[in-house]
């Protein structure tokens, strides 16, 4: 090989960067997030929409809520189960899921999501 040393070093650096997730994750316990339901949520049994929809698209729902509330003044939402909900981030979602750090953050930290909502909305204090 011509200039073999340089080429091999370059290859190792380049491939090392691509392989970095393998090294980074090796030997670390990768715990899948397990959001905890509060007693209140357990009692309610169901979320606003089916759990699979909530897992995939809860922020879409929140966006719909804030737009319809702020722009159209529609403050009530009829869930697919037929139940009526007051459209509010703090007073509905976080009323049931009052354990923000053990519920919302559990997933959000896992995926590095940091909603900007709390710039304005008040994050409810958690009762320990």
């Amino acid at each position: 090989m011509y200039d073999g040393g340089k080429i091999i070093v370059g290859l190792i650096i380049g491939l090392g960067l691509f392989l970095s997730p393998f090294f980074y994750n090796a030997g670390k316990a990768a715990k899948a997030p397990a959001p905890e339901l509060t007693p209140k949520a357990k009692e309610a049994k169901v979320c606003v929409e089916p759990a699979s929809y909530m897992r995939e698209s809860h922020f879409t729902l929140l966006d719909e809520w804030r737009h319809t509330v702020v722009r159209d003044g529609e403050r009530y939402y009829k869930g697919s189960e037929g139940k009526r909900y007051y459209k509010s981030l703090q007073r509905t979602c976080l009323e049931c899921h009052s354990n923000y750090s053990k519920f919302c953050l559990e997933c959000h930290n896992y995926l590095d999501v940091d909603p900007y909502c709390w710039d304005c909305h008040i994050q409810p204090e958690e009762k320990k």
Partner: peptide, 25 residues
Amino acid sequence: LRVDVTKVKELAIGLFKFSPAVPEG
């Protein structure tokens, strides 16, 4: 078309840790 990205990450991490498993859904 949202997918459950929490499970997507479980799949990806499984691949990188050589303990692959495909979550449902």
